[in-house]
Design a protein around this nucleic acid. Structure first.
Lengths: 333, 333
DNA sequence: GCCACTTCTGACAACGTTGTCCAGCCCGAC
DNA sequence: GTCGGGCTGGACAACGTTGTCAGAAGTGGC
């Protein structure tokens, strides 16, 4: 910038004015400065700018896995909103590891991102309290924060799961297995609660062996599904599955597509996924709208950044049962 | 930091030393400083650090669409490599718009990212020359840069497409339609070239109406597919499709899944996608490995950042034909 | 007791930008 | 001719950190 000023024969501040398109520079001077800028290939150093101004025009997003088809649209939606506000998006995957979430969040805070959108992997976010107090707006999405208050955007996991399970019950199923994500994940617990509620409302008992929470690794899911289908572990064999998220659903689709298991059980899954309608049978799902979750979260964030300082808000987004067929397979008699 | 120093009764530099875990601080002093840090909730301001040190420990990634199932794993792979090098990832979607690519790239350069990984949307990257000269390492992935030299990582689009089309020919098809992405996209042209090569090698003519390049919007693809199936536009009806990328393939799967079109045509697609094996018929694809592309690109990038200044390299990653059935549907006689 | 040496610590400048404040200039009006 | 006001431009400090360098304090040998 010094060089530009020297070459254009003006002061530093004048160059700054031109770069920032401030008023109060004669067209002639501006032209000279512009020439010098292009001649020298000058580009403003945003680090210095950030240091001086205090705002980085960037927001951080921490989620489980950028490559997960559920989170990718969420991420994209946050990016779009950020872009509309002139901010860049810094992305991090926590891989469902609380320590990594924390490490990422603090790294982003050290960079002084203006705000943070977090899909929590950890259950305790008190470590963020000083940062939030220091002015970093924070919004949680998909799952609530632990031990602090903050804006959040959630899907209606309980209602969604209940309606999905009720759909299976309405089609005659009495023995329904629930395979969900790790129990420390809030949505997994809520969906299980929805499952139990639907069963209880129909007066149906739930055998212990019909419920399996754990990681989304295909092997684990396959093993639990096989167990439930065989009736091992105490309960009678299940005739239908309700799955707690997209990863589990896809694995169950594979399990039930095996020739010896074709049509052996009905299936309703939480989360929609591409091509669900083209499988045979097409897969009935309780759909969330991940892009909508991301957009809502980002909007809450920029609302804070615009100065809103009212009580933390909770936004709930509805789910939608999309009946496609796999939930309507009748139980064998 | 000043406050921390005051509270601990030490100088600024000593706090800096503690924060950076530099040697040469007595354990007693370090303890006092640490106490002050936690008491005041101090966090180093990385903007200032960046300004002073000149390196941001962050890399930028520009691609078409973060939410595309092809690019999401690529992005994740870049993130992983960056993380291994202690760098954060700043992400931007160009939406296949050259102006937006440029705007994003320059914004990232202004932030002084250490390096840039770009899936080009534009065909001319001369605008990056000053930035590269200024020391921002740049790697192109999936498509080559325009009018500048730089490291790049490509898939073997030509060979892949040729082998995919050859697969269809081997199963008796003589009239094969090619539906690909916009002709300004390098991979689209290469894949078309591969298609023509395979046809030529088999001595088969290619009617003009069998080739359609354009956007990946489902409507466009559906219309072109219908045209080719009906034999409108001059050529005879096609008996098989080769599709130029994952988006087009998915739309073609839908077209061919319609009851009146069931089994009317064979299909081989470029890019693998989830659940391709569970469709009926399972979809034969020419698979790329997007995570591998991203990883390779990031590795090239960090190689540069580590100081390598040899000639720009081009890395080619092979594709793999995964025969699943949809390519083996015989042509109607 | 003195010196050489090591270990620890702090003052200061610099990174590149922008906000504040003031000076100079030109114009028109009295 | 002079004065006021509007416009344009520049000097300087500050943002929060780290590298340099020098000084202070402690240690051991003679």
């Amino acid at each position: 910038m010094k060089d530009v000023a020297a070459r254009a024969g003006v002061g530093l501040k004048t160059v700054s004015r031109v770069v920032n398109e401030e008023a109060g520079v004669s067209t002639d001077t501006e032209r000279r400065v512009q020439e010098a800028i292009t001649a020298l290939g000058f580009r403003r150093n945003d680090s210095a700018r950030v240091l001086r101004k205090g705002s980085t025009a960037s927001v951080g997003l921490i989620l489980e896995d950028l490559a997960d088809p559920f989170y990718a649209p969420l991420s994209r939606a946050v990016e779009e909103v950020a872009r509309a506000h002139g901010a860049l998006l810094i992305n991090g995957s926590s891989a469902e590891d609380p320590a990594r979430e924390r490490e990422l969040a603090l790294a982003l805070c050290a960079r002084r991102v203006d705000g943070l959108v977090i899909v929590p992997a950890s259950e305790d976010h008190r470590y963020l309290a000083p940062e939030i107090a220091a002015g970093i707006a924070t919004v949680f999405v998909d799952r609530p924060p632990g031990h602090i208050k903050a804006d959040m955007v959630l899907s209606e996991s309980f209602d969604g799961a209940r309606s999905g399970v009720a759909h299976l019950i309405a089609h005659g199923h009495r023995r329904i297995g629930f395979i969900g994500d790790q129990p420390r994940i809030h949505t997994a617990r809520e969906r299980l609660r929805g499952y139990r509620a639907a069963m209880a409302e129909a007066g149906l008992p739930v055998a212990d062996s019909w419920v399996a929470l754990g990681g989304t690794e295909p092997d684990r899911v396959r093993a639990d599904a096989a167990r439930m289908l065989e009736g091992q572990g105490g309960g009678e064999p299940v005739t239908a599955f309700f799955s707690g998220n997209n990863r589990v659903t896809v694995t169950l689709v594979r399990v039930l597509a095996a020739p010896e298991r074709r049509g052996r059980a009905a299936l309703v899954g939480f989360d929609d996924f591409e091509l669900a309608d083209l499988l045979s049978p097409p897969v009935t799902v309780v759909a969330q709208n991940p892009a909508d979750l991301g957009r809502s979260a980002a909007q809450l964030l920029f609302r804070r950044l615009a100065g809103a300082d009212d009580e933390p808000r909770t936004v709930c987004r509805p789910t939608r049962l999309i009946a496609r067929g796999s939930g309507e397979i009748p139980p064998p008699r």
